[in-house]
Design a protein around this nucleic acid. Sequence first.
DNA 1: TAGGGAACTAATTGATGAATCACTAACCAG
DNA 2: CTGGTTAGTGATTCATCAATTAGTTCCCTA
Lengths: 173, 173
Amino acid sequence: MSKSETTSVNRRTEIISAAIEVFAEIGYYRATTAQVAKRAEISQPYIFRFFSTKEALLLAALEVSWMRVIDSFRKVVGSASPEHLETDLIQAYDEILNAYRNEILLQMQAQTIQEDSIREAMRNGFGEVRRIVLEAFRAAGIPNPEERTMLFLARGMLCNISTALNMPELKEF
Amino acid sequence: MSKSETTSVNRRTEIISAAIEVFAEIGYYRATTAQVAKRAEISQPYIFRFFSTKEALLLAALEVSWMRVIDSFRKVVGSASPEHLETDLIQAYDEILNAYRNEILLQMQAQTIQEDSIREAMRNGFGEVRRIVLEAFRAAGIPNPEERTMLFLARGMLCNISTALNMPELKEF
DNA sequence: TAGGGAACTAATTGATGAATCACTAACCAG
DNA sequence: CTGGTTAGTGATTCATCAATTAGTTCCCTA
């Protein structure tokens, strides 16, 4: 049982969680800091004690969402047997997509945001995930690991869209 | 040589082209109708003679961009030999991605826009593309056509992201 | 050549949003 | 109990934007 004091760090985390929800639901550019504040049950100006700009808040939210995927994949890679590796990774991503849908919707939005800092965060995230999967496929002795990694990522991106548009038929076969 | 009179229809088309560029570069919600107007070399209010709202303009832009893909794929399906079908489709999409990058960037944005009319347009577009590809794979006698269609679409979506983030390594293998 | 309509714009409006400022309340150490 | 620090807010500012209104220009034709 962890205490839930209102420390500065806790507040920061609460604001990020609220931002992920609101940005995902409303759209980053259309969402207002007032809406984020309301969701976090604080006043709008108080957000700016923790994040210097709205964009800095988006960056923090993206950081959280990439770490969700990266940590999960690292855990799978560290424990899965070579023959279950790919199915376990797929299952792990599927669980994230169910439990943290908004974080993935936010990543999808960020794919087309042109701000340099956002693009860099997205490239880092994708690059790290790709590295983890590719290394794991290699270590598992999977043939054509580069192609298999590409196909794994591709299917993941189609799952995202299938989820976002509520079109299950896109990913089924 | 077609005449380039300034008819009502031409202006409409010009505005849509300008909107595709500006929305793709700036982001739909952040982009202003004034920026679109400037790109189209008309005044900002004049846009509203052709489109009742900013959202109606986005819908028209999405319509253009989906027809680009759909028409191109239909042409390939109508002329390609069964053994070249998939490579020809891939090549066709690659050419669209090069020549009409902004239209695809706009589609990517629209994947996460929650407005009902936009979601419906996106579902129609994806559904029609999927139908065309699946039917063509079946007619060509390709085994597991549903799975192959899913993988084809998945690779396409990864190509989009690879292009948007300028990460060529994502799609290569 | 008068006038009617199509193409187009300047000026404005009402609403909204990010960010800042000036302030209060609660707590805690010496 | 007091002086400093942390947590927090109401009110405001300045900018911006979608959409409307009220016009002007220009061409075609009867």
